[in-house]
Every structure is written in C-alpha cells, then in structure tokens.
Design a protein around this nucleic acid. Structure first.
Lengths: 206, 206, 206, 206
DNA sequence: GATGAATGAGATTTCATTCAT
DNA sequence: TATGAATGAAATCTCATTCAT
C-alpha cells in the first residue's frame, strides 16, 4: 500500500516537474500565448490528457510555475541577510538577484511572460497589483539602513522609492537580455551595475 | 474633385484612426492576446468586417500602431538635440522621454504589449532584435560626449553600455506604472530620475 | 436625351463587356471559386460596387457569361449545315467545333468551369441536366444520315449514342488542353481526330 | 496490449474512413466548394472539431481522398497485364477501367471534383500537370504493341497520342454520367466503347 | 495514471451584397 | 454611374477541456 502510494506520489511529482519544465521551455521559445497545452504535450512527448490530468486547468499549471519560482526565490534570497554594512548589502542584493536569474534563467523568463499575460475573464492581470510595493521594500530598507550607518549619501524617502525601482528594473532587464541574447555576460553586467549604484548612492569624497 | 478625394480620404483616415485608438485601449485593458478583432469591433460599435475592411489583417493593424508610435516618437525626440552640455542633455533626454510617455501613455503601453507578444508562426518575436543596440545608442553618445566636455565622471565604454541600459529601463518602467497605477506621479518620477542619474554620472566635488 | 440614353447604353454595354471579359480571365487563372467579385474588380481596376451595379448578383454575371457563349456558339455552328455527305459533315462538325474552341478559348474554358461548379443553395448543378441529350443530338443525326447516304458502316442507335458521346468528349478535351498546355496544337489535334473518327465510322473497303 | 493498440488504431482508422466516405458523398452531392468542414461534420453527425482532429487541415483530407483512390486504382489496374494480344489488351483496359469506375463511382467522381478544383493560394491547380502525359502512356504502349503484333491497323505516333486521349476521355465520361444519371448503363457503355475502338484500330478486312 | 477521442467556443479571414453619397 | 464603407454569414482552424476506456 504505502509503496504503491509513494510510488504514485513519486511518479506524480516527477510528471508534474517534467510538465512544468517543458512548459517553461515552451513559454521561453514560443511566448505565453502560443504555449498551448497541445504544444507542451507534443514537446513533452505525452498526450494532452496527461497535462490536464496532473493540472486540472491550464491556469493552475501557470500558477504552479509562478509559485515554484517564488519558493525557489524565497530560499535563494534568505542568504542575503548577512552583510555588515548597507553598502555591502546593496552589492550583495544585486549580486544574489543576478545569480538567481542566471541559475534559473528560463524559469524566471517564463514567469515574467506569465505575470505579464495571465489575465482573468474580464482582462485584468492576475499577478499585477499596481499598488503592490512589496518588491521594492527590501531595497528601500537597505537604502534606509544606509542612512543610519552612513554608508550612503543622504537620500530622501521619495528618492529611495525611485532608486529602488531603478535598481529593480535594471536587475529585471538582465533576465530579458539573457534569454534573448546568448552573448549576454551577466557577471560583467553585475559588476557594472554594482559600480553604477555605488556611484549613485555613494557619499562624495571630501 | 479635391473635396471628394479628401472627403474619402478623411473618412478612411478617421475610421482607421478610430480603430487604431480603440485597439490601443483594448490592448491596454485586455492585453494583447484578448484584444481580438471581435472585442475591438464591439468596443468600436461596428461589425468585425469593418476592421478587416480598413486593415486587411490583424497583423497589419498591429504594425500600423507600432509604426505610428515610432513616427510620433521621431518628431517628439527631434526636439532634444539642443542642449549645451552633456549633463543638460541627459536631463533633457530623461524629461522628454517621460513627457512623451505621459503624452501618449496608452499608445506607449499598447506598443509595449505588442512588441513583447507579436510573434511569427515559429514563435519568434517580430519586433525583438536581441543584438539591436540602437535604442541605447543615443544615451551612450551623451555619456561619451560627457567625457569630452567634462560633464561626467570617467565612465568606461562597458560601464556606459550598462548605464544606458539602466536609464532606459527606468524610463520604460514609467509607462508600466502609468497604466497600472492611476496615482503614479510621473513628473515627480522624472525629477527623481534626473537627480539619481546626475548622482550616478556626476564628478565628485573636490 | 437620346444621345444621353444611347451614351449610357453604350457605356453600359462596354462596362458589362469589360466586366465579363475580366471575369472570364479571372476564372481561367484562378478557377471558379477564387474568382471572387473582389478579385474581378481588382483586375478590372474598378470598385466592387461597379460589378454589383451592372450585374445585380454574382450568379447573374455567371449566367450572362454562359448565355453569351451559347449565343456565340449558335451563330458559329449555323455554318455547319452545308456539307454534301454525312462523312464530310462529321469532319466539318469536328473542325468547326475545334475552331470555335480555339477562337474563344478562355470563354469556353470559363464556361466549362462555371457549368461544373455553379450550383443552387441545395448544391444541385444549375447547368447540368443529366437526362439532357441535346448536346449529342446533332452528332447522332449526322451518324443517322450516314446510314442513309451510305457514308458510314452500319451503326446501331445504341452505338451511335456512345459514338456521339466519345466524339463530344474528345472535342471538349481540346479546351482543357488548350488552357493548360500552351504547346497544345489544336489544328494537329483536329486532323487526327478527323482521321480517327473516319476510321471508326468508315465502311471497310471490300 | 496488442488489443489496445489495434483497438485504438481501429477507432482512428474507422473514423478517418467514415469522414473520408462522408466527404466523398458530400462532394458528389454538393460539389467541391460547398463541401465544407461544417457540411461534412453535419452529415457525419459529429462536431466540426472531429474533422480537424483526424485531419489537421481540409487540404490534407482532400489529399488523402485522392491518394486513397490512387492506391485502390494501382491494385485494381495491376490485373490488366495478362492478355495475349494488343487487341485483347485494349478491350481489357477499357473493361477494367469502367469496372473500376463502377466499383468506386462516388470516390472517382469526388476525386475528379477535387482534381479540377483544388488550387493553391495563387490559384494554380495542384493536381493538374499539363505536360503530364503519364495517364496516356499505358494506352499508347498498347497501341504500339498492336503495331508489332499486327493486331491494329498502322497508327502513327501522333495518331496514337490522340487516340489515347480520346479513349481516356471516353472512359472518364462514364464517371460523370454515372453520378449524374442513375439510368446510365455502364456495362452497355463498355461494350459499345470496345466495339467502337475496335473499329477505330482494326485492320480493314481484305 | 494515461490516452485518444470528441466537443464547442472563439479567433481570423473572405466574401457577396447593400447602401449612402 | 460609380465608389467607398459597412455588414453579416460562413469558412477554416486552434484550443482548453471533458470523458470513456
């Protein structure tokens, strides 16, 4: 019994993982709209029914892909909270984020596609909460800390918000470049980005 | 004669403009995928045939929307080339771009949707040229000029590339914010962005 | 008044003739199904409305094309009834028919297309009367006459019917060959056909 | 296992066969143009999707119908090559062809419709190779053989070509008659045709 | 667990036809 | 007379989903 159950469970998990991986690749290659169940099934070498069997609906498949990246991201990001100064912390934040993007480049790109295209019946974006500032909060906290520990030049709260947005969009750009341009050197990009935002936040030398 | 011609031309142009405008709004509201000919026709209060009559195919309709924004953009941007220093030039570049985004916020947002989703039969993005650096060239030129006129701190070519990418992505972010968040204050955003990149490019005072 | 009327009449006739001619060419090039009003209008360099104006419906346009060929055919064929013997008559019949096909090759081919494809709402062929033997009657009469004047070998009525069908289908084949194959030599074909059916009908020499 | 496989295969094959048969009948009743997927589905008592499921495109469905008739024809025709003289051979050729037409009368008629109407986007007939003489080759060979074995009167090569065309078009006519006219007696027609072409090819008795 | 088969909604597109000008 | 504009029906095709086996 238990063997059977865990056997099923294993197969189940393996199949789900395989389907999700294939879906991610299909989205990267074809975009969200053309990554149909049929395409995914063909690429996975299984019948369409398998997809529906493991994921009651296409929406749920997409949601799981987003969810899984968030889980990966959460554990990856938990490493960051260990630097001694805000300046080091910002550098670490940029580095870690770009490492994560590199480590999961297709998954990240696929989730970006999903987030930008997944809508409900009335056309509203499911994953887009315009008032949601939570993505920027960690950066803003670093910038705030830098005011206290003297790492950074004076930065007003309104400036901190825009700076956070700029940092985040520069990081997200790396994902797009990575999938679109095989020559893109993300390590170099990371180094330059760190320098750039050190210059942007740094105290002018006296 | 000329009245007839211009009259015909006028109706034709007016309808095309109306359809394009409705399409732009439909894309903003519903996203690229759900902005179907049927939806557009319903919103425009006409039959589906009208759309096909004025735009032989959906692809052509989309292309015209992209094209028109480029034309608008070209004339808008031609104003920029008049500043005395690279530092002023960069400020002007950011300001003008954000003004343009504000002035054509739906059009800009719709084109972003199209560019990210318009693919050929094999799934390749039509408007996405990964090796295309042309969008960054104007900024890189400003940064280069700033080396010559002494406006900016020393910036290596590799750094200039990344800086240009960062500036551009920060500008493009404004468009997303604008459509998603009615409270977004783009003037404030512009001011902050200018300050930020002045700090990032500025010579440290001695 | 009368000038005006005859002027209109003339223009009217000219336009109708032009439209019919263009339609005939469109059918030859594209086939019946793809010879749409739009295609015809484009080829004629006029608007679709012109077609509908002169021909209330597409069906009527097609009917007129068929009708006109019948009129042409009737006058062309009236020449035949002048030979002295049935054997000469048969030769004349074949010659004249093939001359007619050559003289109006596109029109004949277009009408063949129409006749084979023009159907009513229930799908019944309009121009196809299965029990209609009238196309074979003239040939049968020649064969019958040949019995009387001793031109031909003895041919039973049932044989005459099949012989007539064979002659007619060989003649009609020429039209298909003519439009499909630019190298087809219809004069040569006529000569051979005449020889062939002389052999088929001829009295064996004693 | 094997049951499962052959079972699946069987359903698939049965459905495809059913759809092809229904399509053949629809084409005979309604003609090529009006034999739409919708009509076929309605006649088969299934949804339109079923057709597309088993035949990815309408073109492919049509091609399969043509192909299948060629396969049937190839095996049917292989029987012919067994007569002792060219004269007997010609008789056999006519008989066998007309038997085949009778045995597959709707299929033959449908393929004739398809061949005459199936065009690519530019309007060119797909199945029409004007220079293709291969349909006439078997007959020409028989006629040539008849020169050697003395079965036939002297027939020049150019005459043989036209004779072959005439024989073939007389045979093909039977198919049209058969579907259009329920009273058409093809056995009688065969007998007459054989007599006719014996007269046309026969050596005059001395 | 897995598959093939089927469905029905919806998308794009073509087209004959109508109508105001 | 002629035209452009508009309509609505129908055609092909795609696709997520359901279901029996």
């Amino acid at each position: 019994m238990s063997t059977k159950t865990s056997g099923k469970s294993f197969i189940e998990k393996a199949r789900r993982a395989q389907i999700m991986q294939t879906t991610i690749e299909a989205i990267c290659d074809l975009g969200y709209a053309q990554a149909s169940i049929g395409q995914i099934a063909k690429r996975a070498g299984v019948s369409k029914g398998v997809i529906t069997y493991h994921f009651p609906s296409k929406d749920e498949l997409m949601q799981k892909i987003v969810e899984e990246l968030y889980l990966k991201g959460a554990s990856f990001m938990s490493e960051i909270a260990t630097e001694s100064t805000a300046a080091n912390m910002l550098r670490r934040y940029i580095e870690t984020n770009l490492e994560f993007i590199l480590a999961h480049k297709n998954h990240v790109a696929a989730v970006a596609e999903i987030v930008m295209n997944f809508r409900d019946e009335e056309g509203r974006l499911i994953y887009h909460k315009p008032a949601d500032n939570s993505i920027y909060v960690p950066i803003i906290e670093i910038l705030h800390w830098g005011q206290e520990d003297g790492s950074f030049r004076p930065i007003l709260p309104s400036s901190a918000q825009v700076l956070a947005m700029t940092i985040r969009s520069a990081i997200d750009l790396a994902s797009q470049q990575l999938v679109a341009n095989p020559d893109f050197n993300i390590q170099e990009y990371a180094k330059e980005l760190i320098q750039l935002f050190e210059a942007a936040t740094g105290k002018p030398p006296i």
